[in-house]
């Protein structure tokens, strides 16, 4: 019994990894442009496919991760430059719909290019498995968790401790003032999209490696769960994104282990989101305006 609680906690943390990584990217982009960037999940998806292709051609896990992250970063910045910046003056629901359409476009293009069927993504590394006090953990899981969480922590530190990260946070307050203070606003926006998208691409590749498959609709769940997480975390709050991601993943994993499927996991997440939005429209960790 005790070991199963720990086991579920571990499963929850594993499930949370991708929520945290996606929500961080969404948070830094939402924070700056106030755009709910659903297409972020499309970036994640393409990161996974680019990483897969890189792995097929080079056979190197490291190169696969690097290409996945780089490819995703380029796609992310392209979306921001081509679609978001010109639409900044339109009402928020317009950019949201554009973003949803872009996400649909990215996943359908992936399906048409690589096929609707899942592709096996098994890396050549041997997998060792250990049982510690009834809790099972394997080397692949450790690798997955180590890379996703250290990259996420890296982005967190970048956003909250470095000069450039802090300058970006300043943008959130007021783009016009930042401009007049001589801040190169466009470059900062680019960099935030670059960092967020690279993190999404990296986690896409890792999710593919960990679950050993990738498929064109792997972004669907992530797309809307990411929103749930930033609502939980209180829009734009970076620590909120991390805590929100962990809460969602861990509670999902316990819910399924102990209560079975009352509702599908995804619907459960949305239910939580709607309840929070009604009770605390500024999010769990957000400050009220």
């Amino acid at each position: 019994m005790y070991s199963s609680i720990i086991q579920e906690l571990l499963n929850g943390i594993t499930l949370s990894a991708v929520y945290v990584a996606i929500a961080l990217g969404l948070t830094i982009t939402y924070g700056i442009l106030k755009i709910l960037h659903i297409a972020h999940a499309g970036v994640y998806l393409w990161g996974a496919y680019i990483g897969y292709i890189a792995y097929v051609y080079t056979g190197s896990v490291i190169l696969s991760l690097i290409f996945g992250a780089l490819g995703a970063a380029l796609i992310g910045v392209a979306i921001e430059r081509v679609f978001y910046i010109p639409a900044l003056d339109s009402p928020p629901h317009i950019t949201l719909i554009i973003s949803i359409a872009l996400f649909t476009l990215l996943s359908e293009l992936a399906a048409k290019t690589f096929g609707y069927h899942p592709k096996g993504f098994t890396i050549h590394w041997p997998i060792y498995s250990w049982t510690i006090g009834g809790v099972v953990i394997n080397s692949m899981q450790i690798f997955f968790l180590a890379v996703v969480y250290s990259a996420s922590i890296g982005v967190w530190l970048w956003a909250t401790k470095t000069r450039m990260g802090l300058a970006s946070r300043a943008l959130i307050q007021d783009i016009e003032t930042a401009k007049s203070m001589g801040v190169n606003v466009n470059r900062l926006i680019d960099i935030n999209f670059l960092v967020g998208s690279a993190l999404a691409g990296l986690s896409g590749v890792l999710v593919g490696m960990y679950y050993t498959i990738i498929w064109p609709h792997m972004g669907d769940v992530v797309a809307y769960k990411g929103l749930v997480v930033i609502v939980l975390g209180g829009f734009g709050s970076i620590i909120g994104a991390i805590v929100g991601g962990l809460i969602l993943g861990i509670s999902e994993s316990y819910l399924i282990a102990y209560f079975g499927n009352i509702l599908p996991r995804d619907a459960f997440a949305f239910l939580i989101m709607i309840i929070i939005l009604i009770l605390r429209p500024q999010g769990l960790f957000g400050r009220s305006e």
Binding site: P92, H93, L227, F270, L271, I274, L277, P281
Partner: peptide
């Protein structure tokens, strides 16, 4: 935009 994501949910 939050109404939008609520209706998606």
């Amino acid at each position: 935009d939050f109404l939008a994501i609520t209706t998606i949910g």
